[in-house]
Design a protein around this nucleic acid. Structure first.
Length: 295
DNA sequence: AATCCGTGGCA
DNA sequence: TTGCCAAGGAT
């Protein structure tokens, strides 16, 4: 029998209770705000780099209204080098909406969460499940890989298909809300610790006996090639270098201070323009540049 | 639907 | 060294 809701739930719950990492956002005293911050920070960013920053944020801004009261520059500096700094700006905006329209309490309803900036299909359901114990399919890259292998017998997940992926996971969730939420956490944890992308540790897998991929003889991934994201030399690198200069100064800087970080003037200026457009950089009245919200 | 958006660790 | 990978979202 291949992995199903019947076979999966008890096995995964037992495994999770014994094996799950003791991450701070999983502690019982962590509220929806702590969970939301963790989920945004964890988007495309490893746990090890998120943990220290998460603690700083929760101590400094224990409620959405506290973060909403900070300047964008403060938020971007506190975000540091987590990457994709637009996430920080969107979280800042979301915090303001939560403070003003939701009584300073992170919503537990998926559709309400989806209406907030920076919160998509994954994050909305992750918050609903992990902070509020809701039964809803939480589909991230880990879960897609686990399902691709254990259910479909493939070497890895193909291109994401939101509707189909959520239906696959939904089929694995037990009826009980609370148990379903923990199964969602367990599926993610399984993908993160055991059913990993590079070298899955099948010997340690709680669903080994029910895994379609194992039964099929662990065939290699045969789907479409995944597009490789270059970084060196891209606008992403240049934007990162420009922003790093501004994170390191309190005072606005003249453009000459930014010009030294990258040779190619055309690309450099285009990137600075895009940062201004994205609201990650502001220009002062006298023509200097700074992180937004303070000048 | 494909592409863009940061950063750093690791094999 | 280079390429892959890490709890996605917006357009």
């Amino acid at each position: 029998m291949v992995l199903t809701a019947d076979t999966a739930a008890e096995t995964l719950l037992d495994w999770y209770s014994e094996t799950a990492r003791d991450l701070p956002w999983r502690r019982p005293d962590c509220d929806g705000w702590g969970v939301l911050i963790s989920e945004i920070m964890l988007q495309q960013t490893p746990v090890a780099r998120v943990e220290p920053i998460w603690h700083e944020w929760l101590e400094r801004w224990p409620k959405p209204s506290a973060l909403a009261g900070a300047t964008q520059a403060e938020v971007l500096r506190a975000w540091g080098k987590l990457g994709y700094p637009r996430r920080a700006l969107r979280l800042h905006t979301a915090a303001d909406v939560i403070a003003r329209e939701h009584g300073d309490v992170v919503p537990g309803d998926v559709d309400t969460l989806l209406a907030l900036p920076g919160i998509g299909a994954y994050t909305a359901r992750a918050v609903a499940a992990f902070a509020y114990g809701k039964r809803t399919p939480v589909v991230d890259t880990n879960v897609r890989r686990v399902v691709a292998r254990a259910v479909h017998g493939a070497g890895d997940a193909g291109p994401a298909s939101n509707t189909k992926d959520m239906a696959d996971v939904e089929a694995l969730l037990p009826a009980d809300q609370r148990r379903a939420a923990t199964v969602s956490a367990a599926l993610m944890e399984l993908g993160a610790l055991v059913c990993t992308a590079r070298s899955p540790q099948c010997a340690d897998c709680p669903v080994f006996d029910d895994c379609a991929w194992v039964r099929a003889g662990k065939p290699a991934y045969d789907g479409p090639a995944k597009p490789v994201q270059k970084f060196a030399g891209t606008d992403r690198q240049v934007r990162g270098l420009l922003l790093d200069v501004l994170r390191g100064t309190e005072e606005p800087v003249p453009k000459t201070r930014l010009d030294v970080v990258w040779d190619r003037a055309g690309q450099r200026d285009r990137c600075l323009d895009s940062l201004l457009t994205d609201g990650l950089v502001e220009q002062t009245a006298d023509g200097r540049f700074a992180l937004p919200g303070e000048h």
